[in-house]
Design a protein around this nucleic acid. Structure first.
Lengths: 194, 194
DNA sequence: ACCTGAACACCGTTCAAGT
DNA sequence: ACCTGAACACCGTTCAAGT
C-alpha cells in the first residue's frame, strides 16, 4: 500500500517514544515502514521538515481554547498545556525546541500568537506583546528540556516516594518561573489581577 | 609535536567560527590537526566532552566580576556579557545551549551560581534563587539562539542601514525580556531599586 | 603515554531507473 | 505519481598494534 504523511509521522512518533530522538533517523524510520530511505524524500523535503511534522503532532494537544479567560490564566493554561504535551513524548521538549529553532513547526507559531494575544490583553503594545510571547516560550522550552533530561538521567534508582516528591517539586518550580514572568508583565503594564 | 587539550579546543573554535557547528566533527577536527580521529579520544572521552571544553572557551569572557553591584545591575551585566560571548562565535549560542543541556560546561554552572547569588541578594530564598537563576539562563540562551539563527538567515541581502536598525532593535528586545524577569523578581520579593 | 590504521555500524541526501 | 537501488560523502567510536 501507499505511504502517506500521517503514517510516516505516526511511525516517527513511535520510534521517538520507544527509543528516543537519537534513534529517530531517516534510515531507521524507512526500515520501520518497510520502505527505502529515498521514499521518504518524496513526501518530505528533508529531515528537518519531517521533524517539524512530528513536532506539530506532539503539540496538537497543547493547542487549547482560552477564550473568556483573563490574561494571567490564559498564559498559565497555555504554558501548562505546552509543558504537558512536551513531557508526554520521549525527548519531546528537545525535538520541539529544535523544530522551533529551525522554524519548522507551524503549531509553535500559533502558540506564540496565542501568548502574544494574552500579553496584549495585559496591556502590552504590539512589539512588547511579541517579545513577551517569545520570552514565555523560551522559558517553557528551556525549563522542560532541562526537566526531561534530568528525568531520563534519574530513570534508574529513583524510589517511587522520592520521585513523586521531586515531581511535585518540578511543578512548583515551573510555576515559580512562570509567575516571575507574569508578575513582570503586570508590573510593566500596570495591569491588575481580577 | 604532541597534541594538547588547548590546541584541540582552539582548532575546534576556529572551525566553528569559519564553517559553523555543522562542520565541527571529530573527523574534520582531526584532519585540521593532522592527526588520526582516534587521537582525539585519548584527550577527550567523547564529542560531548570536547564540545563542553569549547563551550567553556566561548564563555570565558562572560565570567565577569559583579562585586559591589546591586542585584539588578549584577543580573543585567551578567546576562549582557553572556549574550555578547555567545554572539561573538558562529553558532556560539547553539553550542553552549547544547553543552548546558548535556551538563558538560563548568562555566555555565558558575554563571548560574552568580545569577543565583544576585537573586538571593534580591531577597529570594535558596530554592527560589536557583529557579530564578535557571529561568534567567533559559531566557538568555533561548533569545540568543533565536537571534543568532535569524542573523545567519538574514546574512544575505541586508542593507547596512537596515541591519544596524535591526540590531539595536534586538538589543531593546533583549533588554525588554530581561526587565520582565527582573521586575517579576522585584515584585515577588518586595525589593526596591536604589 | 600517546598515537595510527583500520574497522564497525551507522548517517542524510540524490537520482537514474523502474512501475 | 510514487518508489527502489545504489551510490556519494560523510559520521562517532573502538581498539589492537605500534613508537
Amino acid at each position: 500500500m501507499q505511504l502517506h504523511k500521517p503514517d510516516v509521522v505516526d511511525a516517527a512518533a513511535a520510534i521517538l517514544d520507544n527509543y528516543g530522538i537519537a534513534d529517530l533517523s531517516m534510515r531507521r524510520l524507512a526500515r520501520e515502514l518497510n520502505v527505502s530511505p529515498g521514499a521518504l524524500y518524496w513526501h518530505f523535503a528533508n529531515k528537518q521538515e519531517l521533524l517539524g511534522a512530528v513536532a506539530d503532532h506532539i503539540l496538537r494537544p497543547a493547542v487549547i481554547d482560552v477564550a473568556g479567560l483573563n490574561w494571567r490564566h490564559a498564559i498559565q493554561d497555555i504554558c501548562a498545556a505546552l509543558r504537558d504535551a512536551l513531557l508526554s513524548h520521549t525527548d519531546g521538549a528537545e525535538l520541539v525546541s529544535a523544530s522551533f529553532a529551525a522554524g519548522q513547526s507551524e503549531t509553535v507559531t500559533d502558540i506564540v500568537a496565542q501568548l502574544a494575544a494574552a500579553a496584549a490583553d495585559a496591556g502590552a503594545r504590539n512589539d512588547d506583546a511579541d517579545s513577551t510571547a517569545r520570552t514565555l516560550l523560551y522559558y517553557v522550552l528551556g525549563f522542560t528540556v532541562d526537566e526531561q533530561s534530568r528525568r531520563q538521567w534519574d530513570a534508574a534508582g529513583a524510589l517511587s516516594d522520592e520521585q513523586s516528591v521531586l515531581m511535585s517539586d518540578t511543578d512548583r518550580q515551573f510555576a515559580f518561573g512562570l509567575r516571575l514572568l507574569i508578575d513582570g508583565l503586570a508590573a510593566h503594564e500596570g495591569a491588575t489581577a481580577p
